[in-house]
Design a protein around this nucleic acid. Sequence first.
DNA 1: AATGAATGAGACTTCATTCAT
DNA 2: TATGAATGAAGTCTCATTCAT
Lengths: 214, 214, 214, 214
Amino acid sequence: MINTEPQNRRERRIAARQEQILEAASIIFSTKGYERATTREIAEAADVSEGTLYNYFDNKIDLLNGVARGFADEITQKIEAIEANNLEDMMAQLLTDRFRSGRERRLFMLFLYEARLNPEVHRYYGQEALQRIISATEKRFRSLIDAGVMRPVDPDVAARAISATIMGFAALYELGQHKAQDNNRFSAERWGSEVTDLFLNGLQVISRADGEGK
Amino acid sequence: MINTEPQNRRERRIAARQEQILEAASIIFSTKGYERATTREIAEAADVSEGTLYNYFDNKIDLLNGVARGFADEITQKIEAIEANNLEDMMAQLLTDRFRSGRERRLFMLFLYEARLNPEVHRYYGQEALQRIISATEKRFRSLIDAGVMRPVDPDVAARAISATIMGFAALYELGQHKAQDNNRFSAERWGSEVTDLFLNGLQVISRADGEGK
Amino acid sequence: MINTEPQNRRERRIAARQEQILEAASIIFSTKGYERATTREIAEAADVSEGTLYNYFDNKIDLLNGVARGFADEITQKIEAIEANNLEDMMAQLLTDRFRSGRERRLFMLFLYEARLNPEVHRYYGQEALQRIISATEKRFRSLIDAGVMRPVDPDVAARAISATIMGFAALYELGQHKAQDNNRFSAERWGSEVTDLFLNGLQVISRADGEGK
Amino acid sequence: MINTEPQNRRERRIAARQEQILEAASIIFSTKGYERATTREIAEAADVSEGTLYNYFDNKIDLLNGVARGFADEITQKIEAIEANNLEDMMAQLLTDRFRSGRERRLFMLFLYEARLNPEVHRYYGQEALQRIISATEKRFRSLIDAGVMRPVDPDVAARAISATIMGFAALYELGQHKAQDNNRFSAERWGSEVTDLFLNGLQVISRADGEGK
DNA sequence: AATGAATGAGACTTCATTCAT
DNA sequence: TATGAATGAAGTCTCATTCAT
């Protein structure tokens, strides 16, 4: 019998149970938000009793922190895994990927919103997780600037701008979902390419080099 | 004796009272979010009894809708009032204004977040208030495109991109506020001009090598 | 100018206003019951302000007492006005009249129910008004017994039995109203005659005189 | 080991708890009526917290429906259990039983009154519980008619008349209770036999002159 | 005398958390 | 370790009554 990471069977079972609860919490929180989600429905979704929840997590906010941790890990990993050496491909992947999963969109919003209201989420998500996401983006930008394919803007500002836009769109996108009539206006691909174009080429007419600036 | 708008003293007092309640609600909601705000503290902030709240608004969500209405009015008015006929100035004002007021930033987040979770807010804010804000922006863009100073991008997409970015930044900004040490990194002016540059000139280096850098 | 009862114009106006409020209260109370009726809707139905209600009545229960007083007056008067010297006619009138007006049926129920819960209503309605109604009925019975057309039962018991039956039927009738399909089963006339028959002739077969009793 | 009904200890405890809550609710509702009863006092009477109430019943009205169900069960069972093959005995038992328990009398009134005002109670009590009680009575009457000891009146009308009378008396009786001086006038037994006589023999003197008077 | 805005006690209900089994 | 019944604090909302205008 091979024990890879979690030493014995018991610890593996515990880890699995925790994962199962976090998965359920992630679904419920992303759907209903933190305040409106109840521990009862999280327990039901995880197929455990409410009491069991409290064997694995101290309280409701600890559950949210657990979800935040997993979410941040997943996003950073995805961003770091993007393989693209021209700017256009990278942007397209960065944006389109973010728009694709409904749960991801909603979790983005959730944490952004909750981080301001909840000190624990703020400490964990606002200062740590988000930092890692922005840093991962920044690193990609820096290498593209070094490669000469991206304008030498402040890569930190650019990374934040991209992140902010993604998060803002996540919200707009969710709202648009409700309108059935013009679904195509809101496809992840369409938004991805349109916004990529904006970010790559800016709003100004190309012939601006002749000095209409400020 | 001519009574122009609020006919008599009583009606004036009632209008003032409604305003006073909305102002209090706006502060509390923007600070604590919808669910965490209690009618008790809104009443206290408005210096009236809880019962009085319900003489002016049907229920808690109606209070939020009242705030949303005022918010949308104010923003659209501000956007329409921007006087600028070059793109850069307009963008700078549009963005900087939005980053300036903490309450405005937080309300942007609040409505965006709540609109997905609460059907009533969605109906009112997501489909009416937000629409007006985006339309006002779109109209500005369209005239700039007609004037030939802005690339002929889809003005609806651009307006949404700007709005999304503003909302995303509103969130990032609020999180940054907590870090006292590098306050200057997050001044409305700095963000305004950096993001303006990004939006105007894009990230790409190509075909713009003739020196438009800042 | 003739001043009959309420001496001057002012007193007449006051009496009229009181009547108008009582009429409204009677409608609302009979429809919704005491607890579920609100002073606001009574005021609206009377077309006066809530404040005015309290200029004419001390409080909500005083309104109910006022309605009870008028109701008892009206019923006793009606019972005393019945002209019939055979038992069958009298019973038919007594019962059918009581079943005819929806408001009267509901007020019967209302006072019966409230009298137990509310000391004031109990004192006024349960001990005084109801007493008058029963006495009026009793007096009619006594004269019929004296005339030899009615069995010499205890007229008090008989009067109470009739009153009880009327009140019970009032309730059953109201419930039946909701069923549209067999409306005719519940017409005042049908009930009146069926119950008259029961009360006049009893349930036992006529040939019981030959001793199947206990 | 055979577990017949309430399988294990836990389930037995839960059933007992539900019963304990219903018993408390029955007392409070019958004493104060539905609107005046508060969930707080029901909880106190049941010796549980208010929260626990809501683990067993959805809301206040569900609590009343629970009481109604038990009430209807009990009454129908009692009526069906009456052993009497002559009309007089049966009537005497039917009436006297109904007059005996104060709580039963008050619940009769309560449901009759509430059924008109509350759609949920109407649906449950007015159309189901009451129906069962009347049907049980009707069935008894029908068999007595078949046996030839009861006049062939419409058994449905007779059952309703009896039920109505019982309910009406329940109300009168309760009012009378307050008068301490002539308690004996209102004993269940006295009313039972007097009203039995009325119902059996009717009020009319005719064609019965052959001496059945009591 | 009439008005109706203001009040605040109190009602019902929810839900995170605990703890005996 | 898992369960879920019990808890009770806290939230939203209603409504009889008062009182300045």
